[in-house]
Design a binder for these strands. Structure first.
Lengths: 214, 214
DNA sequence: GCTCATTTAGGAGCGTACTCCGTATGCTAG
DNA sequence: CTAGCATACGGAGTACGCTCCTAAATGAGC
């Protein structure tokens, strides 16, 4: 028994691993094409399964729900925008600029795919299942929140700040506004033009509001 | 022809109107009892129909979806809390107190029914159907937002305020935070205790942030 | 190569929100 | 009271996300 335990080390080069990888790839491509082509709601899991040439049962072995399929696709896009945002925020003059530079790529992506963004936001906020892709999405957002928190912390080192202020809490309010504005815009309830201005204004007020009024 | 047009005035005393009213009442009570008794997700529309003693087809003539059924129930509760909040906010000393007094009853209600609140928030934010009860819910929230806007406007009259500040936009950020915190708490991701403090702090920062720093 | 154990595949089947349309009920005119 | 019309009712049927269980594929030991 113990001798076979050694073979538990995952071998990635077997037929099995390759098949799995292939199927995952096909499913990813099918979901990606369908979701970005026609919106989330008009795509059925049957369609994805057929296009990926797998059974429906198989599909749900690779993503535990239809929503997870979307997260799988969106995460990949978010991976790029996050990296981009972090990079661009480093050489910003003011904290306002830094935060806006950080978030700009996410906003841009969101505006490009409104319906998928709405579902993405919905699943982030209201999803209960602890699937692989949802976990990844949450991690990515936490990253961004921490980045904003760090920018605020740096600001706090060069300015007199009110004592009882929780900087992480402050960072969260920025994201509350971001989430809500993204939802509004992605569902067509608000002009995309206003989003950036609203967010910038919130940050502006926030920075002034946390200063110690001597 | 024109003479019959007079009869278009809705007569509320016919058998028909009474039947309709009765059914509506039964459906309301059934939905109310089931949703508050066990959570939203474990209630099926069949159950509601049976308990109300109507067919499923009939049920969907009175509420266009399961979510609308919940909104129907929650709206009624919100009607009371809104009135209460508005009343209590009038004799508050500071704008902070006024806003918090305004929102306290809503928060209290939300904490009492976490699961239903989560669904309520989800439908408010992401619902697309233009059902009767959703419209009503949105109107109720607009009311509250306007009330916050008014409190800020009064504050602006007795203090020097930065020029380029949009008070309604500022009011919206308060609600962004409120929505997000309610979601977090109602899904059990955050301690209910912190909600009020977080919100109060946001308002605090906001009020300082919109002041003109001479 | 052969056998056995374990992992993976997939499609028939299920639960549930919602619809469709034939039937019943109430209203109005004559 | 009756006929004709409009409205309301309700349950069989549908769509779709997801599960369950049998069968197939793979790899290990000999």
């Amino acid at each position: 028994m113990e001798s076979t335990a050694d073979s538990r080390v995952p071998v990635l080069n077997g037929r099995r691993a390759r098949n799995k990888h292939d199927k995952h790839q096909r499913i990813f491509e099918a979901a990606s094409a369908l979701f970005t082509g026609q919106g989330y709601s008009s795509v059925t899991t049957q369609m994805v399964a057929e296009r990926a040439d797998v059974g429906t049962g198989t599909l749900f072995r690779y993503a535990s729900s239809k929503a997870e399929l979307l997260l799988m696709v969106m995460n990949e896009q978010m991976r790029l925008t996050t990296r981009l945002g972090v990079a661009e925020s480093t050489d910003a003059a003011s904290p306002n600029d830094a935060i806006m530079a950080l978030l700009q790529p996410q906003i841009h992506l969101s505006l490009a795919f409104p319906e998928n963004t709405a579902v993405y936001q919905r699943e982030i906020l209201f999803g209960t299942e602890q699937g692989r892709y949802r976990t990844e999405a949450l991690a990515r957002i936490s990253e961004l929140e921490d980045a904003v928190g760090n920018i605020l912390a740096r600001f706090a080192q060069t300015h007199r700040i009110r004592k009882d202020i929780d900087l992480n809490g402050a960072a969260r309010t920025v994201f509350s506004t971001l989430h809500m504005e993204l939802i509004r815009v992605s569902l067509g309830r608000q002009d995309p033009q206003t989003l950036t201005a609203t967010l910038a204004s919130h940050i502006d007020v926030l920075l002034l509001g946390i200063l110690d009024p001597e």
